[in-house]
Design a protein around this nucleic acid. Structure first.
Lengths: 187, 187
DNA sequence: GTAATTTCTTATCATATGTAAAGTGCTTTA
DNA sequence: TAAAGCACTTTACATATGATAAGAAATTAC
């Protein structure tokens, strides 16, 4: 759990009591490469912190597997559209590598917000940061070419090519694996 | 200010004291159609609530005006990438119609969070909802065709065509005005 | 109310990306 | 170790969207 606490410290330091209360609703879970952490149709009631490994959120659009996002070490993962609305998710979370995640029970967490103001502030900031990164992603999808998006991705995540299959990267960029191959062949 | 309080009630009811404190950091501002509410390069320190009219967030990519988002009555507007990072924004907010906005001073608001827990919860929920809608927008940009995106937009905002010029809608959808004309000609 | 400007549409051609199919090489597994 | 399966690439062709330019329609300014 030390990695989680260390990461929290960089975002919004919390009191010892809040730390203790938080740890009580956390537990570590491990998943093998390729297995679903949470399945499609499940209502998201857990926020995960990636301690080791990496995961993706994916869904099916007309039988085609589409990767919505990747998360690596020290990132938080949840299916926002389910977690914040209480509706079942059409999306799943899957381990891309053998991964260790810290699972935080979201209902218990929201309860803790009432007694630990600093915990709510911490998670508000986490949500704000996620929000900013989705806004930036929209900008990229809206008017960058697939080629620009690909080269930006490997610039920001230099080791992603070693860790994530190209087929996942292709749908993440909004293109087919064939199209990605063409882009990669250029340079 | 009644419209703002009414909208808040539907999201997360707050105490009378919190209401009073909030109103003290709000003030109403009016803008004529076509004028900038906040300019490019300005660091966002205001959250707006649209009382009447509509606005858009836009920026320039290589001299081309791109609309990132629209907001209509009863919605909150802010340039998240600036508000939550403290950096100057490359984006502007512009009134599309003559509009009445309620301006909330964000620094004062964040200060109020310390004394009014329910205000923080309210704004956390507002951010959560914005986050969910950006996640949905990513899904749409990632794998829907321009045609699907257009018909979804007018389905969700039935009166948008009467209120917003097509050139803004085109860039919002990630296509050129010419391409939008073609799509509209189909049906 | 007319002229000027802006917005929108249409047409033509160029280009990027999609689809389908076949081939290559790597990994898994029996 | 051979066979099977999977990931990735390449090719050929189809289609959607972009770029440019010209014309029609709507809006704005005087």
């Amino acid at each position: 759990m030390q990695t989680l606490l260390k990461q929290i410290k960089t975002l919004h330091p919390i009191s010892k009591e809040a730390e203790k209360a938080l740890l009580e609703i956390c537990n570590e879970v491990k998943f093998h490469k390729g297995t679903d952490v949470q399945a499609i149709g499940h209502t998201c009631k857990t926020i995960y912190f990636v301690k080791e490994g990496c995961v993706r959120i994916y869904y099916y659009k007309e039988d085609i597997d589409i990767t919505e996002s990747f998360e690596f070490e020290n990132a938080f993962v949840a299916r926002a559209e389910s977690l914040f609305t209480g509706k079942p998710s059409r999306k799943a979370i899957q381990a891309i590598e053998d991964s260790s995640l810290i699972a935080i029970d979201s209902n218990k967490l929201f309860k803790l917000f009432e007694s630990h103001h600093d915990l709510e502030t911490l998670f508000r900031k986490i949500i704000e940061a996620s929000y900013v990164s989705t806004v930036n992603r929209i900008e990229s999808l809206q008017f960058n070419t697939a080629e620009e998006r690909y080269f930006n991705l490997i610039k920001d995540h230099s080791n992603i090519l070693k860790r994530v299959p190209l087929k996942f990267i292709a749908s993440y960029l909004g293109i087919t694996p064939v199209s990605l191959s063409r882009i990669r062949a250029i340079k």
